[in-house]
């Protein structure tokens, strides 16, 4: 059905391809559209009471109001966790990228260490963090301060959860930034150095602006991921208040038959907040001159 429009757009100078060029994207589009559009439509329908497990479908917003207060608190908590960990990840990742792009042995060491955590599934990262930071974890054992060990796992500040996200995401941000800086910055930096810019000057006027787009992009990806991910907060968190994904999964798995629409409602709210975050990041990126 896209044929008539796309035919016109094929470049004349090249040998005529067998498939109109724009259609090359169609297989990927079909899969993504099925998952994104199909998934969103179905979850919205469930949240509005159109697909009950038992009984007749009936349009209602009851699922959204059933846990109104918890939904607000959970949303705030999720934002705080994702925001803090993303901020930490960006700071640490930026430092790591600066060290990595110096090359030499310490750059290589940091690059090697950070690529260790990249392929690790988050659930494994969470389990490892638990073994490290829990009340009876490695650090508490080594420092022998069990009685006074701060409540990092399951504590009021969600420290272990934030630590895990910041840990894995700082490696992600660092490697993305190092990749961007390595391809772009050497020439600029040399020029700046030739023109007499000092260390801080080079950092402020060359490296920071150069890495800002990549920092924003990777930071946004990291933020959305930690905002919508379940297993880390489930393993290292506390039972109340709950971040949105944990609340959604608890309701989804609850044995009460009315709780599925409520779980879907929490999911819809999570998706809406994620979408807002992405739109804000895009709006910000457009203002950055280096963004292509």
């Amino acid at each position: 059905m896209f044929l008539p429009e796309t035919e016109v757009l094929i470049t004349r100078s090249r040998p005529k391809p067998r498939v109109p060029g724009a259609l090359l994207a169609v297989p990927a589009i079909v899969i993504v559209a099925f998952v994104v559009v199909g998934g969103s439509a179905m979850v919205t329908a469930q949240s509005l009471g159109l697909m009950p497990l038992v009984g007749r479908p009936e349009l209602s917003t009851a699922a959204y109001t059933a846990h109104g207060g918890d939904l607000l608190v959970g949303g705030g908590l999720s934002l705080a966790i994702a925001g803090t960990s993303t901020l930490l990840a960006c700071l640490i990742g930026f430092m790591a990228a600066l060290i990595m792009m110096q090359g030499r042995w310490c750059g290589k060491l940091v690059a090697a260490m950070s690529s260790l955590s990249i392929p690790l599934p988050h659930i494994v990262g969470a389990a490892a963090t638990g073994l490290l930071l829990a009340d009876s974890g490695l650090l508490a054992r080594v420092f022998g301060t069990a009685e006074r060990w701060p409540p990092l796992v399951g504590g009021p500040w969600w420290a272990a959860v934030i630590f895990e996200y910041a840990w894995k995401e700082s490696a992600f941000v660092g490697l993305v930034l190092a990749g961007t800086l390595a391809t772009r910055s050497v020439d600029y930096e040399e020029t700046a150095a030739l023109l007499g810019a000092g260390r801080l000057g080079r950092l402020r006027h060359v490296l920071l602006p150069l890495s800002l787009p990549a920092l924003m992009t990777s930071g946004t990806i990291a933020f959305i991921y930690s905002f919508g991910s379940y297993e880390v907060a489930w393993l290292l968190g506390r039972p109340y208040p709950e971040p949105l994904p944990v609340m959604a999964l608890r309701l989804y798995n609850s044995v009460t038959l009315t709780s599925r629409p409520e779980a879907a409602a929490v999911a819809v709210v999570t998706a809406a907040v994620s979408l807002c975050a992405v739109l804000m990041a895009l709006a910000f990126l457009r203002k950055i001159p280096l963004w292509r």
Binding site: E5, A22, V32, A45, I224
Partner: peptide
Amino acid sequence: WSALFSALLFAPLALPAFVTVFGL
């Protein structure tokens, strides 16, 4: 179609997996 294609192709990054999974 390119703008729509890009928007769709990158949409999964903005949509937490558990949301689509509940629906799908």
